[in-house]
Amino acid sequence: MAKITFIEHSGERLVVNIPVGWTVMQGAVQNGVEGIEAECGGSCACATCHCYVDEAFVDALPAPSETEEAMLECTAAERLPNSRLSCQLKVSEALDGLVLRLPEAQS
């Protein structure tokens, strides 16, 4: 399990325990995080699970794949250097304490 904090665009904070091996997106959807839409179901094809990774964790994450890079160009909200698609982030113990901010819009 890793404890992951989602900060909705409204400022509301949700702390969720996600099993190792799941994706961050899956954990968000299962726990009712409103700001993650995840229209495509986790195949990196819709850019509606966009999140901004807390600066302290950016370097702890594996770099985005080519497909994620390309899909990050399709986000509804502005892409920032710390933008990631949460369906591509696999939960590991190393992500315990991760903080993610959610954009104003996903689509």
Binding site: Q26, V29, Q30, E39, C40, G41, S43, A45
Partner: peptide, 21 residues
Amino acid sequence: PKGHLGFGGGVHACLGTAFAR
């Protein structure tokens, strides 16, 4: 019903979700 399995899920989730919707 967020997270439903109508399109499967994971890496093999349906390719045609946007088209189907």
